[in-house]
Amino acid sequence: MPMNPSPAPSVAEQLALYWRLMRFDRPIGIYLLLWPTLWALWLAAGGLPPLPVLLVFVLGTVLMRAAGCVVNDLADRDFDPHVARTASRPIAAGLVAPQQAIRLAVVLALIAFGLTASLHNVPVLYWSVPAVAIATIYPFMKRYISVPQAVLGLAFSWGIPMAYQAVQQRVPLLEAGLLMAANFCWVVAYDTYYAMADRDDDLKIGVKSSAIFFGRYDRAAVIALQLLALGLLLTVGLLRDLAWPYAAGLAAALVTVLHQAWITRDRIPAVCFQAFLSNNRFGALVFVGLLLALR
């Protein structure tokens, strides 16, 4: 006899699946995207930015990260079932249909665009277009380029010029460029730790990552990128003549870098993932130093 079809999920169950699909149960990506945006907002304003601008950027960060996660899972729906850590994701597990996910991503992006439009700053809207384009193409890059983390670094840095434009009505090329370069290096570094946790699975299914590209020099590359990021952040502080708490925040972030390097010496996947997660502390320490320096 034919089996009875599974009952359709309730509204609560469907919302729970969407919550997981947007990765709200794992907010580390929100924090890692938000910290550099907050750095830029505080530097652009010389302290607390206008509250409407701050609110738009915080909410926009949350929404665009959620949309990015949905697009990522759509792009990886043929790969995720073969990776232990991602096999239970809603699309990979067949719990959310691709068409549903596409509609969700579009709604999230439209809400984020509406928030940005509420600032009544047309150049910020112009800056948002490449931001959406880069975030959309990133999930597909692991098929084509050896270091797809470079595209992620660009995507996670695009909020910086948008923040300057929203606060100052311009983008100071030197300061914003240094901040973007610092964040780019940091993103590639921490996402390499993430990739180190998945390296064996990625090799099996044939996708590319910085961990595979750097090979046995993976930790050396991560440390070099993190030190370069700190050097660029220090340069920003020197150019702005920021008070000593900023340097103290960078020094504390350096301790986090050294701790990550030590615990990942054996390249144990679970420990590499913990090193990735601890970059939330790195971003927070830089922000707290900046916050105290600009009081």
Rank of each mutant, 00 (worst) to 15 (best):
P7H: 11
A8C: 00
M22Y: 01
M22Q: 14
R26H: 15
P27R: 06
I28A: 13
I28S: 06
L33G: 08
L41Y: 01
A44R: 01
G46M: 08
F57K: 00
G68W: 06
G68Y: 03
D78S: 13
P81S: 11
A84Y: 00
A93G: 12
V96M: 05
Q100G: 07
V106A: 15
V107E: 11
F113E: 02
L115Q: 06
L115E: 04
L119T: 08
N121T: 01
V122D: 11
L125F: 10
Y126F: 15
V129C: 07
I134M: 14
I137N: 11
F140E: 04
M141R: 06
P148H: 09
P148Y: 09
L154S: 01
L154Q: 03
G159I: 06
M162G: 06
A163P: 02
Q169M: 10
L173Q: 12
A176T: 15
G177E: 06
F184M: 11
W186Q: 09
D198S: 03
L203V: 06
I205W: 02
A211N: 04
V222W: 01
L230Q: 06
L234N: 08
L239Q: 13
D241Q: 15
A243I: 00
Y246L: 11
G249D: 05
A251S: 14
W262V: 02
I263M: 15
T264L: 05
V271R: 15
C272W: 09
F282H: 15
V286F: 09
F287C: 02
L290H: 06
L292N: 03
A293M: 07
A293W: 02
